[in-house]
Design a protein around this nucleic acid. Structure first.
Lengths: 329, 329
DNA sequence: CTGAAAGCGCTAACAG
DNA sequence: CTGTTAGCGCTTTCAG
């Protein structure tokens, strides 16, 4: 592997000149530039990022800390973050926490400034005093704990209210919710939006129609739906806090021969690609994931130098996509 | 951030001694060790990986080059590779190629030895002379081109034959295939397995029942299925080269009111989590993804030092999971 | 067993 | 405009 020195020797100039050319710096005498470029070409020189970053005091990496890549929402988001990071010459390092407190703590602990320049976090269980970060960070989605860290995400209350409002507008009266969670901040907000929509429609809030979910996987949605269908007076609609729960719920409904949307209307949250192809296709809240990814990366980039400005709170847009699970074809 | 020097000064020893302690090297006089450990604790010292790797001539990263994280198979695999890499103190850098030749070339070009120690590749379009890698690599899945690089994957011919054999055993006579592709090595192999199974059952091979797919997304499966259903004599079964195609195919069948599995049996490939929850659930070939991930990482690790031994060809196990898309409940 | 010192490849003063 | 030089933080001979 050719080094700067090799190129310099070959071009008959100093390393500084080569460095100048490589970095597009200042003015370089044209014939020197030409010879350097020829030498660059001849040696196939590629800068050693490790050395450059050591010198510059940066690493060239950002961390993306998320529960699990096998969850479609996070997989899609990760792809978009990688793309957004590329624009700023950042490589992305993905850490999986599996949504556990210990996993999240482990991931944070490994995030020294020698490893990454910044971090994008999607925590689910972290406590307020865990957030002693040594690098700039941004939180994805809202969180129960109140820490002075920038956030990027949609307005969960408004989104949930929109989703449930849609069910109300369909004339549904017994609207259930799946996904309540004691720790997760977003769960609390979505529940709040759910209650607000019910209140606005003068529908009574029935605690028995709110089902918690420890995880947000398909299996949890199926289990929750079964418990709802076992009620003396089952719901005629259900708002699921993510698409995976909704897919599980629809599967459980199908197994019980409950017809969606005729007997039961279903709304999800996240708009996974999968939801377009389920039978019936799933109505869902669609956050602008690309906007979330680039807002997070841009925020980190713009704050790279400046230490702790006042944390930003970026709200990205969302929409409700109505499909067959609420409106029959 | 404390450096080795800081720790040394605090402990009243030289950096060498601290380095020895940090790296668990040789013998260090007990009282020196104690003082160093105290200083380590007091400063909260964390080694600067960049500097260490610069010195050691390694980077601490491996690249995982894949088409797209939004494809569930690759997302699941990526999660497993990250976990496997952790065992060897490697961090994983994910590069997306979107399955295009230019994307794949771009990703390879950025893979200097200064960036990563090794690479795991899942190429779809690369030509034989693109494989001028400067780092040890392993190929995932089989490839059309014959290059002297280690591979890890399942026996695609056998797997496809198993899948189609299952359809044959159900008494299906007009068995279609979706996913033929001029470039992809795995597509050719799966097609080969398909033909072998037909031949073994004395079923005629009908070119009109083999539908190509440019991409392996749900939309491609739906489009292919529609074209099959438009045939004068449509199939009574279909083998899809991945689960995404199968999900799209099932969706298209549902839209045409074709009943799965009664009118049409469907088998997929990859066993995405999603396929367990579709209605009907999808019969699929299940490769052992965890085995693939750890075999790939271990292979890279064991060959870290040794340059180019004879390439290995690791076959990982697979199984056929029979679900509702081929056998009604 | 441990200290001094060189140097991985690069950038950035600082002189010229 | 360009060469010299001093490190970034770490590991590693080489002497003691």
């Amino acid at each position: 592997m050719a080094t700067l020195k090799d190129v310099a020797r070959l071009a008959g100039v100093s390393v500084k000149t080569v460095s100048n050319v490589v970095n597009g710096y200042s003015f370089v005498k044209p014939d020197n530039r030409a010879r350097v470029e020829a030498a660059l070409e001849a040696t196939g020189y590629r800068p050693n990022l490790g050395a450059r970053n050591l010198r510059r005091g940066r690493t060239g990496f950002i961390a993306l800390v998320l529960p699990e890549l096998s969850i479609p929402y996070f997989a899609e988001l990760a792809g978009l973050v990688i793309a957004a990071a590329q624009e700023h010459e950042w490589n992305v390092l993905i850490e999986q926490t599996f949504g556990t407190l210990s996993g999240e703590r482990l991931a944070l602990a490994s995030l020294g400034p020698h490893l990454v320049d910044a971090a994008i976090l999607s925590p689910e269980a972290l406590q307020v005093d865990d957030f002693q970060l040594s690098v700039p960070a941004v939180l994805l989605g809202e969180h129960a704990v109140d820490v002075p860290i920038s956030r990027v995400g949609i307005d969960n209350v408004a989104a949930a209210k929109t989703a449930v409002g849609h069910l109300v507008s369909l004339g549904r009266k017994r609207i259930a919710a799946i996904g309540a969670h004691p720790q997760r901040g977003t769960a609390a907000l979505r529940l709040e939006g759910y209650r607000a929509a019910l209140a606005e429609a003068d529908l009574e809030f029935a605690p028995s129609l709110v089902v918690p979910a420890l995880n947000y996987h398909r299996a949890d949605g199926a289990a929750a739906m079964k418990s709802l269908l076992d009620l003396r007076n089952p719901p005629d609609a259900v708002f699921c806090f993510n698409d995976l729960l909704a897919i599980g719920a629809m599967r459980a409904a199908a197994e019980r021969l409950v017809r969606v949307p005729h007997d039961l209307a279903v709304v999800g949250f996240d708009n996974n690609e999968e939801s377009l192809y389920s039978s019936p296709s799933l109505t869902s809240i669609a956050p602008d994931k690309a906007a979330i990814a680039s807002a997070a990366v841009d925020l980190l980039h713009s704050r790279a130098g400046s230490p702790d400005l006042v944390p930003a709170d970026v709200q990205t847009p969302f929409s409700l996509l109505v499909r067959e699970s609420t409106v029959a074809r």
